[in-house]
Amino acid sequence: MTASSNVVSASIDSQVHVETPENVWLSFRVAGPAPRAWAYVIDFFVRGLILLALALLLSLVTPLLGFSALPQGIMLLGMFVVIFLYGCLFEYFWDGRTPGKRAARIRVLKVAGYPISFWDAFLRNLLRSADILPGLYGVGLVAILSTRRMQRLGDLVAGTFVVHEERDVVRGYPPWVHGVPVIPAQERSHAFRPPERTLDLIETFLTRAQRLSPARADEIAHILAGPLRQRLGYWDPEQQHAVAPGWFLLRVLRTFVYPPTESQPGHNVDLPGLPVAPPGSMSRSAPDPHPQAPPTPPQWGQR
């Protein structure tokens, strides 16, 4: 664990680290009260729908049977299952997820980072009756807000916690570096190569810049670009001063991280980043939020 990762973990408070038997630590994003409440609301409706379906089915069958108390008894058994065993059964058979949790993209795990057992699921769901106590999950909310892993009483006793699902998004070669010209060696006076973390910072920033307002993105790009331009001794023969900082950062990325290869100028075959699986094999991965990532903000276009 390096110093900088400690800083990261301390500053992003919903990150929890778990050390594995392989002696690395895994990081999880803990789910707070809001997504969990949302999951609960969805589950509430799913339970209602199950009971409604059962009631409809029984009302169709009743005239055939002639007993009025028989469907009543089955209905009560159904209510028992839906009220007391719904969470437990789903969380056990679906690896810590109920339909609501699935929709909210959260999951219950043991605090050591692996799936829960039947007893864990049973225990944490039974203890709901204690968490709910003064009304509206008072005890549970206090427990969630006062524990580092945001656990309610049931989680504390069962040794479980609720995390955000990994966002298994494939992002290989960012499409928006296509056609961006590299910075030729004669335009930079120093043989300076930006450190990897700086380049990563630039890439992270450019990925997220689309979600910022143009003015704000420009402002941040300026902070990043200024010192870098100095270190590189960069000068643009045509328009020294008019180059937008965002465009400059794009060109830096193109030069040092995604240089065009000789065989295919403008298209990089040796994909940096993570393996991009062939289409169709990524059954688990969520749809890419930037399918064909939109080009960089227009104000950064060529001149």
Partner: peptide, 15 residues
């Protein structure tokens, strides 16, 4: 420190 994105992706695979 080879990048948060890379780290996150590997982290998720190991998880």
């Amino acid at each position: 420190d080879w990048g948060l994105e890379l780290e996150r992706r590997l982290n998720d695979l190991v998880v």
